[in-house]
Amino acid sequence: MSADFSFEDREETEVVSAAKTGDAVAFEELVRRHGDKIFRRALSMMRDENTALDMAQLAWIKAWNRLSQFHGDSSFATWMTRVTINVCLDHIRKAKRWKFAESIEEMDENSGGVERKLPVVETNPTEGLEREELKKTIDRALAQLSEGHRAVIVMHTFEEMAYKEIAESMDCSIGTVMSRIFYARRNLASILKRMLEEDSQS
């Protein structure tokens, strides 16, 4: 019986196949293998540990219910990450909808408007920093981006999703995605520059 069977040393495809038949033990093994990555992705989207934890759990629950839709076109981790991103985007959309859900400042999409007047950042603002230090600085800068901009950076830069795929996830046109990626990057570069200036002053 599956309850007595360990999937620890099994190939991923085998574990996924077993999970698809409804084997919760196999599914738990998938959660064990990819739990950190999925949480990290949820955290990069949500920026709040508790919300990210909720989103990661919700993503796993959704994945369980939709396992039959996974046909192995990509790796399980990639598919699972897409599910997580969509769960996070859905949550962001719902939270943004009602005024009383969060403060306006937190929900501000901040796309277009002021950002469109941003100058092109010509130099690499993070030059001279150590790698680990850079990661932390980028992490802090990402936290300051609006949710929409952070989402496209995560999807495009870190998940290497194509424009079309991002457009489908965000339910918008490819043109909107292109524009949003551009302004998200500009905004991120500008935030990084400002942070470094502040750091050097302090």
Partner: peptide, 15 residues
């Protein structure tokens, strides 16, 4: 800019 973000990667977070 694009190369830089990809090269550095993300901060690692665990559950």
């Amino acid at each position: 800019e694009q190369g830089f973000l990809k090269d550095v990667g993300e901060n690692s977070h665990e559950l």
